[in-house]
Design a protein around this nucleic acid. Sequence first.
RNA 1: GCGCCCGUAGCUCAGCUGGAUAGAGUGCCGGACUACGAAUCCGUAGGUCGCAGGUUCGAAUCCUGCCGGGCGCGCCA
Length: 555
Amino acid sequence: MKNALKETILAAAMVDHEKGIFPSSDFCEVVLEEPKADSHGDWSTNMAMQMAKAQRMSPRKIAETLIGHLDDKKGIIDRTEIAGPGFINFFIRPSAWYPVLAAIHEQDDQYGRCDLGKGTRIQIEFVSSNPTGPLHVGHGRGGAVGDSTANILSFCGFDVQKEYYINDSGRQIQTLGMSVYLRGKELLGETVAFPDTCYQGDYIRDLAGELLEREGRELFEKSEAEAIMPCARYAAQKITEGMRADLVDFGVTFDQWFSEQSLYDSGRVAGDIRDFKEKGLIYEKDGALWFKTSDYGDEKDRVVVRQNGQTTYFASDITYHKEKFERGFQKVIDVWGADHHGYIPRMKAAVEASGYDRDQFDVLLVQLVNLLRAGQPVAMSTRAGEFVTLADVVKEVGRDAARFIFLTRHYESSLDFDLELAKQKTNDNPVYYVQYVHARISSIHRKSESDRLDVSGFAPSDLSALETPEDIALIKALARYPETVGTAGALMEPHRITYYLMTLAAAFHTYYNRHRVLSEDDLKLTRARLYLIAAVQKVIRNGLALLGVSAPDAM
RNA sequence: GCGCCCGUAGCUCAGCUGGAUAGAGUGCCGGACUACGAAUCCGUAGGUCGCAGGUUCGAAUCCUGCCGGGCGCGCCA
């Protein structure tokens, strides 16, 4: 409908130009927007003001001329008006909205899909927590944002791959192995000093116990040098499995789990370092190897191989991101915690130095989560091993509430997550507000069946009974969905879907309280309204699916 | 000191690729269930969009400077 209106306006402008009324053929793009106030119509354009300069005419004069030559072939315009400095406002005939409902029913779970991405291969990497401890709420937010963004991008015509990068190499893994090894010794009855630098959580002791049962006491009687890596590998693998299970419970799955260690095992990291050395992008200074990231906008060069010969995290990251592009992704997205923001310039530099456009790589920086309980901060100390894990949160408040709340804020804003609030089944907790719409509509459909209202096989050709302002307002809300999805995809902002759903839910609840759907003495109206609310239900379900939240038939 | 994010109603936040009278929830106050689920709805009240300049026909939105809060600035990850 919007496009039809655009074409009509553009055609009018062409006619005016051909007649010589508009001297310039420079028509700016026709931009239609929805005015905030209903009194300004259904659609509004500012093009008369935009064109004023090129046409050397006053905006209002241009507007008048344009309106005079509108040829509304489809008969969708009820009336037009010129307002303010030169806005043209269009009022749409109520019945012109009806085709939206047919489109929803025809396209069903595909309603709202677009081809923004045109098949672009895009990879989104998220969570990627180190396998040294359980996932916490911050990872939950990253998981919700990453997974939902992937859903939305896919719905917008991108070819999306979701990936988890396992940091199963480097010093932290050594530390993990050491932690397990020492706890194992304790289990054997030895008295050992357990350093602060080791991981303190109880899960380490559990892992040591499992390993002891599996491998016997010999492992822990070996020397540190011999025992650490077996301990580390076992622990990292078990922890990774646990994280995968927690993420599944949270509704987050990945297409691929990519091991950092595999980049070393295949010799790719060493190979890349050699290649960059030959190109002069890696040089030696103070006994270490440095990458010339400052040539690509970073504030200084960065170490890739330390004086002691060990590679840094950055070294494998260079190879990893290069490898991503070599796999054929045209666009690579990383979802990081905001505390890593200082890492972006060097990563962009590495991508550019690898021969790719720095804009092909983007980072979604997700701000931190403040965990609260009834307004009071929950102490989060990783070192002391005291933290509320993602699994705890999902268990306590449920997957749907957790995911929805994580997506009620722009990811660039910090988020207060209140465990008590998240459990409440009130309006404080908007997930139920939205899900309630779905359940209510299911309930109405059940009722229509039990009342044996003769509306079977409804696909009414006559929707003229949908005539109240609330009927039309609801259809208009449904009509906004595709554009909302498109914006959410283009900007990678899943919270736009969340807000859309809350607005749609509000429109439905208002409608519900004001009008009856089922009335035995007016089957034409009943049929039309059942058709309408079924469309609402489909859009609610589609939107919730993009967020990874269920749409229950009863609550 | 430098960099990134944030600053909008008492509180929590949308709106930010410039549009008309700045929105929602919550909280306060007052209303609506003998018909489809009251986990709902309706109404009243509540604002120097941090401050000051600039660009523009038009700025919460863009630019500059300041103020306040958070997070970073390692041959850690």
